[in-house]
């Protein structure tokens, strides 16, 4: 376990020193602060638009950070040959991969934590609505699970795919994985949808990770929505995420174990 923790710590330090990530974080933070000005663009109440927009910024910027953070992690180590100095010590490859992954999500957690603080400040101090700010943390918490899942996908793919290709592939999987449930649901609820389309949508949404499971903004944006048993849903979704992350890491370990570096 010690090697894993040591690698994770080093990865966190490395991640927070990367300028590209810091710039993304900076832009996201600025956007979060200017979000209240966008309320005038909507005919609905400003609070609704602000909530939707803030959650959107957090989700989108977290996704970009998660992908950028993880797609370069292993290839950079190989390219700079720093991996040799690590693997020459009593560190197994799976420990290296796990350490990298845990370090990545820890760094991601720090960045999302910062965005959560900005959100809290924005709603608490600027909007005088601490309750709403705290409520939003629940949604951001689910986004964190979503981003951890996304990072695991990118990490698994990074064991055998070049970073640029991986960036777009992971982005594509995120896109399909987010729409998968919506498409499947749309087909399911439409009595006129052809059976073949339904089956295909089911297959795709079953195989690919369902990122949409963590989009739980409904209640936060529209407080009048009636959500049945949200706690149980959150638990189920987190279990799903943990299982899928495990699958991705096992896949990554198996591939990375055989890869020549």
């Amino acid at each position: 376990m010690k090697p894993i923790i040591a690698i994770a710590k080093a990865t966190v330090g490395e991640a927070i020193r990367r300028r590209v990530l810091l710039i993304m974080l900076f832009i996201a933070t600025i956007l979060l602060f200017v979000a209240p000005l966008l309320g005038v663009l909507s005919q609905r109440s400003e609070q609704t638009v602000l909530t939707g927009f803030v959650l959107g910024i957090v989700q989108l910027s977290s996704a970009v950070i998660a992908i950028t953070l993880t797609v370069y992690m292993l290839p950079n180590e190989v390219e700079r040959r720093t991996i040799y100095t690590i693997l020459s010590k009593p560190v197994q490859r799976y420990q290296f991969l796990l350490g990298k992954y845990l370090g990545a999500i820890a760094a991601l957690g720090l960045m999302m934590g910062l965005m959560s603080c900005v959100t809290l400040v924005e709603f608490g101090i600027i909007q005088h609505n601490w309750g709403k700010g705290i409520e939003l943390l629940q949604g951001i918490g689910m986004f964190f699970v979503q981003m951890s899942l996304l990072a695991s996908v990118a990490m698994c793919l990074s064991t055998f795919i070049a970073p640029l290709v991986n960036f777009f592939l992971t982005g594509g999987i995120y896109l399909i994985g987010t729409l998968g449930y919506a498409f499947f649901d749309s087909f399911n609820k439409n009595p006129n949808a052809p059976g073949f389309s339904k089956a295909l949508a089911w297959f795709v949404s079953t195989i690919l990770p369902n990122f949409a499971s963590y989009n739980v903004q409904n209640k936060l944006i529209n407080p009048d929505s009636v959500i049945v048993d949200p706690v149980q849903y959150h638990i189920n979704a987190v279990i799903y995420g943990v299982v899928y992350i495990t699958i991705m890491l096992i896949g990554g370990m198996l591939i990375f174990d055989r890869r020549e570096v």
């Binding site: 449930y181 919506a182 499947f184 649901d185 749309s186 399911n188 609820k189 949404s205 369902n210 949409a212 499971s213 989009n215 739980v216 903004q217 409904n218 209640k219 929505s225 959500i227 049945v228 048993d229 949200p230 149980q232 849903y233 189920n236 979704a237 799903y240």
Partner: peptide, 12 residues
């Protein structure tokens, strides 16, 4: 996951 998501959070 899906049935609860569909009932509570689906855009459709």
């Amino acid at each position: 996951v899906y049935p609860r998501w569909s009932r509570n959070y689906s855009p459709v």
